[in-house]
Design a protein around this nucleic acid. Structure first.
Lengths: 194, 194
DNA sequence: TTTCTTTGATTGACGAGTCAATAAAAACCA
DNA sequence: TGGTTTTTATTGACTCGTCAATCAAAGAAA
């Protein structure tokens, strides 16, 4: 059975199982055994490859952020002009995938962890920096010096709307979320001339 | 020792101890014993008065929200005019108290719990409805029909900015947070004429 | 005495992380 | 080629610790 090169396969299986398990239970209070069982291996193997539960979860979050970053890049290549570029970032943030219960649970628990785990905090910083950079880049041309504060506000608005859509009643509505954020973005772009 | 009317005293002590303990550990993974010890009683008594850990935490969150609501009301009575009323709500949301580590920890864990606990979800709904109502009321006069979507956006912006300030580097800056939100609010108020 | 308060002790269970031991593939060697 | 060693993969069993929740019983006021 033991074939070579199992490590990356096991790691990915664990990462995906972690997200699924946290999505089902809502909490980080899932056990390594549950995650390992879902990934089809013993808990000892999970510890062998990752070291501990927190490291497994951070890896899972890194994965989630990677997928999100890819979504953003994918949307950006088809965008022309500032408004479209901003909308690309916003749309990616509110994609169906990001509103799935497991993704939401991952993010919420990630925020909790970021309070106390340096590694998680670092990862969160990367997310903040990336989205800020993407938005700034899109806004720099039309807004000039105002690009920075507007980007910051759009980023915060994305997070806030995401939170409310995720925890509100009923199924989250991605299009409505996009409109909520773009409503502000367009306002800034229309009064553009710096 | 057993005097009458201990119940409210014990409950309050437990609620405050819960917030302090979660603030110190960051997580809901604190034990009932830790909370009870901090509140100066046995864990059995905590169970006696609240039933279980989740109920203790929900009570703690209800308390936190109550304090916040009082802050908002206090700020509102001194406000005249739409802009000031909005700013009152925003300022209260970013008061030093709300940026204390224990309050932040309470809110973040509350979001996690709201995914799976009906009681927590109901409480979160109350928060959403209240802030929406306060902002709508402040904006209805100058913005008319546009009051609702703008209020929703301001509310989301508050949550988003709060999240970023709390989990960003360094000490949260309440004034900067207020300015970030009011920057948008004023934009809407200036183009006011419906 | 009745009622409220309080806790020590207990139950019954679970969990993270470790370790020694097994299994199998690959690399080395003759 | 056949045999042997090394490396990687894998897990069952175990340690040590924890914890939520219960309960019977005791202390004290009404």
């Amino acid at each position: 059975m033991p074939k070579l090169g199992m490590e990356p396969i096991r790691r990915e299986a664990l990462v995906k199982a972690t997200i699924a398990e946290i999505g089902e239970h809502g909490t980080l209070g899932v056990t390594v055994s549950q995650i390992a069982r879902r990934a089809g291996m013993s808990s000892a193997l999970a510890h062998h490859y990752f070291g501990g539960k927190e490291q497994i979860f951070v890896a899972a979050m890194r994965y989630t952020m990677g997928v999100y970053a890819a979504e953003v890049r994918g949307a950006l290549v088809m965008a022309t002009g500032p408004a479209e570029r901003v909308e690309a970032v916003v749309r990616a943030s509110f994609s169906p995938r990001n509103f799935r219960a497991d993704t939401v649970a991952a993010w919420l628990n990630f925020y909790v962890l970021a309070q106390v785990s340096d590694e998680a905090r670092r990862l969160l910083d990367i997310y903040h920096r990336r989205i800020r950079s993407n938005l700034c880049h899109a806004l720099r041309d039309p807004l000039g010096a105002r690009a920075w504060p507007v980007a910051e506000r759009v980023a915060a608005l994305i997070d806030g709307v995401y939170l409310r859509q995720s925890l509100g009643h009923g199924t989250p509505d991605g299009d409505a979320a996009v409109e909520q954020v773009m409503g502000y973005a367009r306002l800034e772009l229309e009064r553009a001339p710096t």
